[in-house]
């Protein structure tokens, strides 16, 4: 029987929103795991925060936990701790984990909780109609900062590296195939896996063209096991180049093993 991961709920993302591509990538990743017999469908739990990204939980016919704005990460750690045989992933937003819930994602990285976080980074509070988040570029004009954001943006990958995450990747939502592959790698990774998904918000901050021109994929020359190389690549998110792929991967005991 073919796996049907859809629900009866009508998708309410804007037509053409890259969130749909993330949804497709994740469904494909799950389908591939299930058909290969490597993960059973009932052993997957997908958490979500609150924002446009969080709607994804309604569109997935699997176990889900749609938390509060900013609070999904500790719940996922709790789920994994309660039942280690579950594969636990979470969909979060840049507002959701780098503005409101910043302490949770940093501590989960630090403790190497065995969960995967997929960050829909659209550099904007989309669901609340366009305000600057902690990842918005300086000067971003949103409803709450009409003269432009005065802060430098946070670089999520760099923070995650500094906090000790053991798997860090960046991907571009429109590349569904690569996003799916990276999601699978993250889910198979034992330890805290962080995937920043560049997800332009076509309604409040359309960066599609910007990223299309700048995204490039890391090749085998990148030593993902080397922390210095990883820092170099993570820092390289400059005006002209945005490296994507697996930036860093290492292994150490997980939080759930140690508790």
């Amino acid at each position: 029987m073919a796996l049907d991961l859809t629900t009866d709920i009508k998708i309410t993302w804007c037509a053409g929103c890259p969130n749909s591509q993330i949804l497709v990538a994740f469904r494909q990743a799950v389908e591939e795991f299930v058909s290969a017999g490597s993960i059973e469908i009932h052993n997957i739990v997908a958490g979500a925060g609150v924002g446009c990204h969080g709607k994804i939980s309604d569109y997935l016919e699997i176990n889900t936990f749609n938390s509060l704005h900013g609070r999904i990460v500790p719940s996922l750690t709790g789920i994994k701790l309660a039942n280690p045989k579950l594969t636990v992933v979470g969909f979060s937003g840049d507002g959701d984990s780098f503005s409101e819930g910043f302490s949770h994602i940093t501590h989960a990285a630090r403790s190497n909780s065995d969960i995967s976080i997929f960050l829909h980074n659209n550099q904007v509070f989309a669901l609340t109609t366009g305000q600057a988040t902690a990842t918005s570029p300086k000067g971003f004009k949103g409803g709450t900062m009409p003269e432009g954001s005065i802060n430098e943006p946070i670089n999520p990958a760099l923070i995650m590296l500094a906090m000790g995450a053991t798997f860090i990747a960046r991907t571009f939502a429109s590349d569904i195939k690569r996003t799916k592959e990276i999601m699978k790698e993250a889910m198979l990774h034992k330890g805290f896996a962080f995937v920043e998904i560049i997800q332009p918000c076509i309604t409040f901050f359309d960066t599609r063209e910007y990223y299309k021109e700048r995204v490039y994929w890391l090749d085998e020359k990148h030593k993902k096991g080397n922390l210095d190389c990883a820092f170099k690549v993570a820092r390289m998110k400059t005006a002209d180049k945005v490296p994507c792929g697996i930036i860093y991967q290492t292994f150490k005991p997980t939080f759930e093993e140690l508790v």
Binding site: I72, P74, S75, T77, G78, L81, A82, S103, V259
Partner: peptide, 26 residues
Amino acid sequence: LKVVHPEDEIAVLNMALGMSYAGKRT
């Protein structure tokens, strides 16, 4: 028994709800 002291009280209750959701009496 699983006993956790996380980063703050907000994390405390959210983590606990995750455990209960997954079936542990928390």
